[in-house]
Amino acid sequence: MSNTGTSETRTAEQPQHKVCWSCKGPVGATSLFCETCNAIQPPGQLDHFTRFGLKRTFIIDVDAIEATYLKQQQLLHPDRFASKSAREQALSSQQAATLNGAFETLKNPVARAEYLLRLAGHEPEGGEGHTVNDPELLMEAMEMREALHDADDRNAVDTMIKDTRKAARACEKDVADALEQNAYDRAKKLTTRLRYLMKMTEEARAKKSRLAAA
């Protein structure tokens, strides 16, 4: 088996009205619950930004979307439907899973950037198992890896964590600018770099706890 990347659903033009499965009347295309009979609706194909009532931009207020996330989860989570019919339980599970997926994508800068690229019709480069051929980035990554390998006390690793985090934050700003200017090729490259930086931070953290445990 070989991997061809994560599949994504693209958004199609939404019909204005759907039929409620429960009362068979009209229900808004973006409604979570039927306005008439209150029945929970299937999640549909909304894009993640629409789900959170946001415009499609890279810069978002994560705390604000978390508040929306919690509010929606209060209504949609399967625990709210434990004594309802099997169909409603299944729909609730789908809704909650979709909501979780949307929140996870939006709150993570790399996932969010990749998602925006896909929405704009550009496949991001170099997911796991794909080759990246940006020599500059490969060089940078190699150097970071070596530096991490050589760092043998907690302080040195700590410094590395701080550095990569700082670099990641700066890179996030660049990604935001590139996306803002519809400079998708640049955005792709920067997103790949951001993924590397995040991964390095993670590896450095893992090394730190290994050192701590030893």
Binding site: M1, S2, N3, T4, G5, T6, S7, P78, N100, E104
Partner: peptide
């Protein structure tokens, strides 16, 4: 995750992912 060529694990859902969760990954024949 899933087993891929060479006995390597391809993670589909990471630990500490909120549940319920649905995630898909595409593979091909070799």
């Amino acid at each position: 995750g899933l087993e891929t060529m060479g006995g390597i694990v391809e993670k589909v859902i990471d630990r500490n992912t909120p549940i319920p969760v649905a995630k898909a990954q595409e593979f091909t024949t070799y």
